[in-house]
Write a protein that binds this DNA or RNA. Structure first.
Length: 498
RNA sequence: GCCCCCAUCGUCUAGAGGCCUAGGACACCGCCCUUUCACGGCGGCGGCACCGGUUCGAAUCCGGUUGGGGGUGCCA
């Protein structure tokens, strides 16, 4: 692999703390991080909390937690600090004000006292008349407060708007899409009536002050990029490179949303029992070809080494869980059994199914049983249901009706023989191998039954289900006494029923 | 309405004019392995949205149509 020396890049992800962290944030973070690592640069987390109305207090902590869970760690941010802080926009209000003043002084921005009602009426009128020029009508431009106050639709606390010039260049380069064209902007508000900047001003000021070299964001931002570039020009700054990523979609192809898709909530994956490495690998495959050609499994390190903006597919990928689930099973199978047992335990504690700290006996049982379910798991959350028969007292085991229905006329003598065989296994060698050899000899060869019939009856007695983890391993984990109790219970039940 | 972005199997994608009667993965179906279920192996189903150009030759280039998405906020 030839690697041209790349200049260290500084990239950031800038989520808004307005609710549960979105999967799109993780998607953008992954690509940001990959390029930062490839160039030996930095990845920065900035909290964009300029919307006081939608602000959710707990959301910032959830952003930290879920991004860290996924292994997407930042070099600078509100929690770890850094040379360009503060990294929360609500703490940078004093930073923005001088630039607003400068833009007004230079004639690039102006105060607007129009009330929300007037603006809304204006928008409705534009919609009704189906005009092609939407946007603010510049009623306030060039007027003093007194002049404007004499007109209708006035409000006392003004906003500040950009004065978009005619003939603005609407094209700009994008590292993913080449030369782009965007629609002519409106006189965008840059400072709200409450003194907070809007995204458009804050993102430009912060990205410049924080030395951001590449702005990686969703394609929904393409249309506002000319406004941002104009701000860079007015302020005398060099604009960064832009990379507009495709948008993740719901099954119906709309932009992925929490309402239509539970997977839009990043925390959902953790709750469902997905492994962070599986989700990370899956996200790497969204809009990006497999790093290793036909093999779609790839580590983050390999992704970083091969990363190339030009390979990003601008088509918005549908977020379909099938492949993620397969990847999850793959990563589960690749774990050391002890590590898997640990992950399952953590999952059970995190989801409140097990107390914290968990019962040591339950953990021990899980650790012994995990090897036999490892290749049968697709989600961590499936472990406990598959092992439920091990966590059930012998006297409480319920034999399912469909399992009972598989029993034929041979069942009573199969169970009688099995009891005898299991009873005779020396306590010290109650292993899967010993049990299989003894039961195969006694039931399959001795009684001349098909393995399916013989072991099926034993399975029903031991697990109470038609389908279970491997029978002999299950018996070894369960222990001799429990096995005998369960075999006798079913034998007795059949005898009673005649 | 107006503007912008996009268009290969159901889904994720390979493909940058001849290597493509379009390759892989997931899903689905069948077979094998097998004490159940899985895992694994083998095979199958299935696609270049449409119409015009350009070219000896187009999935690949150009135009249009259609379709989908996004934007059009004192949200981000």
């Amino acid at each position: 692999m030839t690697t041209t020396a790349l200049k260290p890049a500084r990239l950031r992800v800038a989520p808004s703390p307005t609710g549960d962290p979105h999967v799109g944030t993780a998607y953008m973070s992954l690509f940001n991080l990959a390029y930062a690592r490839q160039t030996g640069g930095q990845f920065i987390l900035r909290i964009e909390d300029t919307d006081r109305v939608r602000y959710v207090a707990d959301s910032e902590r959830q952003i930290f937690d879920t991004l860290h869970w996924l292994g997407l760690d930042w070099d600078e941010g509100p929690d770890v600090g850094g040379p360009c802080g503060p990294y929360r926009q609500s703490e940078r209000l004093d930073t923005y004000q001088p630039y607003v003043d400068q833009l007004i002084a230079d004639g690039h921005a102006y105060y607007c006292w129009c009330s929300r009602e007037r603006l809304q009426a204006l928008r409705e009128e534009q919609e009704r008349s189906k005009t092609s020029n939407t946007g603010y009508d510049r009623l306030c431009y060039g007027k003093t407060r007194e002049e404007r106050a004499a007109l209708p639709g006035f409000t006392d606390s003004p906003v500040v708007r950009m004065l978009i010039p005619d003939g603005l260049d609407l094209t700009f380069p994008d590292v993913i899409r080449g030369q782009l064209t965007a629609p002519p902007p409106d006189d965008q508000v840059i400072l709200k009536a409450d003194g907070f900047p809007t995204y458009h001003l804050a993102v430009v000021v912060d990205d410049h002050l924080m030395g951001i070299t590449h702005v990686v964001r969703g394609e929904e931002w393409i249309s506002s990029t000319p406004k941002h570039i104009l701000l860079y020009q007015w302020l005398g700054w060099e604009p960064p490179a832009f990379a507009h990523m495709p948008l993740l979609r719901n099954q119906d192809r709309s932009k992925i949303s929490k309402r239509k898709n539970p997977a839009a909530r990043l925390a959902w994956f953790r709750e469902q029992g997905y492994l962070p490495e599986a989700l990370r690998n899956f996200l790497q495959l969204m809009g990006y070809p497999p790093v290793h050609g036909d093999d779609e499994v790839a580590s983050f390190e390999d992704f970083v080494a091969a990363f190339d903006w030009a390979k990003i597919n601008p088509v918005g990928p549908i977020f379909d869980l099938d492949k993620l689930t397969w990847l999850n099973g793959h990563y589960i199978r690749s774990l050391e059994p002890a590590e898997l047992a640990q992950r399952i335990t953590t999952h059970l504690v995190e989801t409140g199914q097990w107390p914290s700290p968990p019962d040591p006996a339950a953990v021990d049982l899980l650790t012994r049983a995990t090897p036999m379910i490892q290749e049968r798991l697709t989600l961590l959350s499936e472990a406990l249901p598959k092992l439920a028969f091990l966590y059930t007292a012998d006297s409480d085991l319920v034999v399912a009706d469909d399992a009972l229905a598989t029993l034929n006329a041979d069942a009573p003598r199969v169970l009688a023989a099995a009891i005898d065989i299991v009873h005779q296994v020396p306590a010290g060698s109650f292993t899967a191998e010993t049990l299989e050899a003894a039961l195969r000899a006694g039931l399959v060869e001795g009684l001349e039954l098909k393995a399916r019939v013989a072991f099926g009856a034993v399975r029903t007695a031991i697990a109470g289900q038609k389908v279970s983890p491997p029978l002999f391993d299950s018996m070894a984990v369960l222990g001799q006494a429990s096995c005998l109790a369960r075999l006798r219970a079913l034998a007795g039940r059949l005898a009673t029923q005649g």
